[in-house]
Structures are given as C-alpha cells and as structure tokens.
Simulated scan of single mutants.
Amino acid sequence: MTTPQLLSDEELERSAVVANNSMNRERGLTGVNSYARELGFDPVAHLSALSVSPSWLDLCSGEGRALREAAGRLPTAAVLTGIDLVGPPGPAPATPGVELVTASVAGWAAPRAYGLITCVHGLHYVGDRLGLLARAASWLTPEGLLVAHLDPDSIRWTDGTSAGRAVLAALRAAGFTYISRHHRLTLRGPRSVRLPFQYLGADPHAGPNYSGQPAVASFYRRLGS
C-alpha cells in the first residue's frame, strides 16, 4: 500500500467528507437514535450520580439536541458544553446551562474539568484523533468518564497499513479500555497521556468505515522510528 496525499487539519475540515458529515446532527438523548443507545448508558443517570455538580462536554456535538434535553433533567447548576465544527444551522434555542461552541476540536481547549466527556462517532472525522484523546484525558474530573467511538482500522502507518493494534496497545497502557464489539473507548479519571506516535496528516477519501458512512483515515508514525 502507498500513502495517499495527506491533508492538514485545516485542509481536512474544508473537505466534503468532514464539512458535510451528518453524525449527531439531530441525535437525541434517549430513544432509538440517541446518545443513550450509542454510549450504552443514560448520560443523565451518570451525571446525577456524581458527587459534584453535573458537567458534560460533548465533542462533535452536532446541533446539541442531547445537551439541551439533558439540561431539563439536571439541576440548574449543571454545565453542559457542546463543541462542533459546524454547529446548529441557526441560532440555537437559549437553554440555561448549555453552551454550544462552533469551533474545531483540533485547536479547542477545555476551560474546566468535566464529569462526562463524550465523542459519539465524531472521531471518524478528526485528523489527529489520538492527540484529541490525549488532551481530553486531562479534562476529566477525579470521578469523570470519557467515552468515544474509535475505529482502529482507520489509524494507519505511513505505508497505509493498519496501526490499530499498536495504537490500542498504547491506549490500554495509558489506562483506556476498548470494547471492540461496540467500538467504544473509555477512560475513568484524569491523567496525563503521552502516546508514542507522531501525527502526519489525514486522508478524507478513505471510504466508509464500520458505520457505513464515509470517514477519514489518520496517518501516524511511531516516535523514534
């Protein structure tokens, strides 16, 4: 296999696959097409069980519908933040406690710690997904939980072969848990994560992944190689 022409994060975000992806645009909190179904648990139940005020950061949050629905079931002190490259199609309804930020997750930094951090199928469209995971690991509260969908087959070496096995081994060594059946990566509690890989760029023409939707392949090299 040969390496395709790789795009920087800025170029990637202008590509048709990323700019036009519909993941999470209208996904609700519970029900058939919901966060509860994709995550395997009710986000509000998790947040309500925390010993501190609920706080949820949703990366690649789409229109933020799930956050707005959660706000109605949580105390008024709850902090719910959604980050999305495109964001709502128009001015989002004002919901107390909910902040929807239109920004690239590649350069965004959390201003506080969160009890729940989610990225429901959003990593499929992020270039440096390992860099985002490493940063997000430090944004958790002591009892916080990070859950993200990850496709190891879309992480590749410079020659185009899969880096998935090596990447999963490094993530597990850093404290993450991966359930291959559901493609869910989880982490409990904050930590400083340094993964032994250098991001090289992304290919938006990699084709469909396990979700059946066109996705992005991210290319890395092992540090020291």
Rank of each mutant, 00 (worst) to 15 (best):
Glu99Ala: 15
Arg135Met: 00
Glu26Ile: 04
Arg129Cys: 14
Gly72Leu: 05
Thr95Ala: 02
Ile83Gly: 01
His121Trp: 12
Leu145Glu: 11
Thr118Trp: 09
Ala103Val: 03
Leu50Met: 13
Leu116Ala: 06
Val105Pro: 04
Ser51Asn: 09
Gln213Trp: 08
Val193Gly: 05
Leu171Cys: 02
Pro190Leu: 05
Thr161Tyr: 03
Ser61Tyr: 02
Glu143Gly: 15
Ser180Val: 07
Thr95Leu: 00
Asp151His: 15
Leu150Ser: 09
Leu39Gln: 12
Leu39Asn: 10
Val105Gly: 04
Thr141Gly: 07
Val52Asp: 13
Thr30Arg: 15
Asp203Leu: 04
Ala36Thr: 15
Ala136Thr: 04
Arg68His: 05
Ala163Ser: 14
Leu133Gly: 10
Leu132Ala: 12
Leu57Phe: 11
Arg221Asp: 12
Arg14Thr: 12
Gly212Ser: 02
Pro208Trp: 06
Ala169Ser: 14
Ala106Tyr: 01
Tyr35Gly: 00
Gly31Asn: 06
Gly90Asn: 10
Pro196Cys: 06
Ala94Val: 14
Asp151Gln: 13
Gly122Leu: 06
Thr118Ile: 11
Gly224Trp: 08
Asn33Trp: 11
Ala169Leu: 12
Ser51Trp: 00
Ser218Ile: 07
Ala94Glu: 13
His46Arg: 15
Ala103Lys: 08
Val105His: 03
Leu187Gln: 06
Ser8Phe: 02
Leu74Ile: 06
Arg191Phe: 01
Asp84Thr: 09
His121Ile: 07
Tyr35Trp: 09
Ala106Asn: 14
Tyr199Gln: 04
Gly224His: 09
Leu80Gly: 04
Arg68Tyr: 03
Ala36Asp: 12
Asp128Pro: 11
Ala66Met: 02
Gly207Gln: 07
His46Ile: 11
Arg221Phe: 00
Leu168Pro: 03
Gly82His: 09
Pro43Phe: 08
Pro91Thr: 13
Val98Asn: 01
Gly127Arg: 06
Leu29Tyr: 11
His124Gln: 13
Ala49Asn: 06
Arg181Glu: 14
Arg156Cys: 15
Ala71Met: 03
Arg135Ala: 14
Gly107Thr: 15
Gly90Lys: 12
Leu57Asn: 04
Leu50Phe: 00
Pro54Arg: 01
Glu10Tyr: 00
Pro152Ile: 01
Arg156Gln: 14
Gln213Phe: 12
Pro75Asn: 11
Ser55Tyr: 10
Leu29Gln: 10
Leu140Ala: 07
Gly122Tyr: 07
Ala19Arg: 15
Ala174Asn: 10
Ala173Arg: 14
Val17Gln: 11
Tyr178Pro: 09
Gln5Pro: 04
Arg194Leu: 10
Glu143Phe: 00
Val86Gly: 00
Leu145Pro: 05
Ile155Gln: 13
